[in-house]
Amino acid sequence: MSKHHAIKIFSTFVMLSVVSSLSGAATEIKGDSPSEYVVKKGDTLWDIAGVFLQSPWKWPSLWEKNSQIKNPHLIYPDDVIYLLYRNGEPYFSTSKGGSGKLSPKVRAVGKFSPITAIPRVAMQAFVGDHRIVDASRIGKMPYVLAGVGLRDLIGSGDEIYIRGALDPEFNQYQIYRIGKVYGIKDGLSTENSEIIKIGTVDLLEKEGDISRAIVTESNGLIKKGDIIVRGHALQLQPLYYLAAAPQGVTGKIISAVNQAHKITRYDGVVLNLGVDTGVFPGHVFSVLKAPRQVKDPRTGEMVLISNQVIGELMIVNVFENLSYGIILNAKGIVSPGDSIVPVQ
C-alpha cells in the first residue's frame, strides 16, 4: 500500500475542546457566526476563520494543542468545526470527517490534503518563480551565451551555451530573467533585482568557462543574457501559520508583482521589509491608504482624508532586504506606496 493511501488508525477520537487564553476573545466572534461549519474542498483557512472571527488572523488563539490534533492549521475537507463556549469564553472544537462521536476513527491519509491559508495557485507564480537578489551579484552570475547553432529563439529541448563558473558536479540549473530593480527610490540602501524563473537546464559538458546544456523546461523563449542559478526553484511552504506581525514593524508596498497599479485580492506585492525586520511567512499586516486630499463637492475646498485600513496582507517569502506578500482582503483599491502596519 502506498504511503499516499496509508490508513492512520486513531485508537480514540478526541474533539478539541480547550478554552482559549485570549483575553476578551468573545468580542472577536462575529455576531452572525454559525455554531458549526463543514470544511469543503477549496476552502482556505483565511475564509473559514472569516466565517467566525472579526479578525481571521487570530484563528490559532482560540485553539490549544493536544496529542490528538497537534496543529490548528491542519484542517481537512469534511472536518466539522464547532464554535463552543465555556464560562462565556469561545473556543473551537473539531470532529474529523463529519463525525461528532467520541469513537475510534479511521482516516485515509492522502485522500485530502490540509487546506491552506490561501489558494496555492495564487502564490505559486511569485513564490516559486520569483526571487530577489542583491543587484551587485548579477554581473558575477553565469549567463546564456547563445543557442547551439547560434539560434536566437531558444525553448524547451534546445541546447545552449553558458558562460561563467558552473560546478561540474552539479547537473541541474535554473534560468532566470532580470526583472525590476529596487533601490534608493524605494527606501533601500542598496539595489536589489527581482529575477523571474523562465526555465531549467541540465548540464551536458563543460570546457573552461563555456558549458553546453539542454533546456528541459521553459515558460517562454530564453534569451541571450538570461542568468543561470544553481539549485531548484523556491518551493511553497506546505502550510502558512497565520499570526499578527510583530508590533512596531511597519513598511510599505513598493510594487505589484505583476506591475499592476490597481491591486486586488490574492495579488502579489513587493514590500520594503527584509529579514532584519523579523518578519516571517504567515505574518499578517493591515494595509493603510496614504493620507490624501479630496475636493469637497459643495464648498470646493480641499479636505485631508487620514489613513484608512483598506485590507490585509500576508507575508509569503522574505529575502535580505525585501519580501513578497499577498493581499488577503481588499476593501478598496490597494496601490504601490500604501503603508502596512501590524494587524491589531
Rank of each mutant, 00 (worst) to 15 (best):
Ser21Gln: 10
Leu22Phe: 04
Ser23Arg: 14
Ala26Asn: 11
Glu28Pro: 06
Glu28Tyr: 09
Gly31Pro: 14
Asp32Arg: 07
Asp32Tyr: 09
Ser33Glu: 05
Ser35Cys: 00
Gly42Gln: 14
Gly42Phe: 09
Phe52Cys: 00
Gln54His: 15
Pro56Glu: 00
Trp57Asn: 02
Trp59Ala: 01
Pro60Asn: 06
Pro60Trp: 13
Leu62Gln: 02
Leu62Cys: 05
Trp63Leu: 11
Asn66Trp: 10
Lys70Gln: 13
Pro72Gly: 08
Asp79Arg: 01
Ile81His: 07
Glu89Pro: 00
Glu89Thr: 01
Ser95Ile: 01
Gly97Ala: 04
Ser99Pro: 06
Val109Arg: 01
Gly110Ala: 02
Ser113Met: 13
Ser113Leu: 10
Ser113Pro: 08
Pro114Ser: 12
Ile115Asn: 14
Ile115Gly: 12
Ala117Met: 05
Val121Pro: 15
Val121Lys: 14
Gln124Ser: 14
Ala125Pro: 05
Gly128Asn: 15
Asp129Gln: 10
His130Val: 09
Arg131Glu: 14
Ile132Tyr: 08
Val133Cys: 05
Asp134Arg: 03
Ala135Cys: 08
Ala135Tyr: 05
Ser136Leu: 12
Gly139Trp: 15
Lys140His: 03
Leu145Ile: 07
Ala146Glu: 01
Val148Gly: 11
Leu153Cys: 07
Leu153Ser: 07
Gly155Val: 05
Gly155Leu: 06
Gly155Arg: 07
Glu159Asn: 08
Gly164Met: 07
Leu166Pro: 09
Leu166Gly: 02
Asp167Asn: 09
Pro168Leu: 07
Tyr173Thr: 00
Tyr173Asn: 02
Ile178Lys: 15
Gly179Ser: 13
Gly183Gln: 13
Gly183Arg: 13
Lys185Arg: 09
Asp186Tyr: 05
Gly187Ile: 05
Leu188Glu: 13
Ser193Asn: 10
Glu194Ala: 07
Ile198Glu: 10
Leu203Glu: 08
Leu204Arg: 04
Glu207Gln: 10
Ile210Thr: 13
Ile210Phe: 04
Arg212Thr: 13
Ala213Asp: 08
Thr216Asn: 02
Glu217Ala: 08
Leu221Phe: 15
Lys224Leu: 07
Ile228Asp: 13
Arg230Ala: 06
Arg230Ser: 10
Gly231Trp: 00
Gly231Arg: 01
Gly231Thr: 02
His232Leu: 00
Gln235Pro: 09
Pro238Asp: 13
Tyr241Trp: 12
Thr250Ser: 14
Gly251Cys: 08
Gly251Ile: 14
Ile254Val: 11
Val257Tyr: 11
Gln259Trp: 15
His261Phe: 06
Lys262Ser: 15
Arg265Met: 04
Arg265Leu: 04
Gly274Asn: 05
Gly278Phe: 12
Phe280Ile: 08
Gly282Trp: 12
Val284Trp: 04
Phe285Gln: 01
Ser286His: 10
Val287Trp: 12
Val294Pro: 12
Lys295Met: 10
Arg298His: 02
Thr299Tyr: 11
Thr299Ala: 05
Glu301Ile: 12
Leu304Gln: 09
Ile305Trp: 13
Ser306Glu: 10
Met314Gln: 01
Asn321His: 12
Ile327Val: 02
Leu328Asp: 00
Asn329Thr: 03
Gly337Met: 01
Pro342Trp: 11
Pro342Cys: 03
Pro342Phe: 03
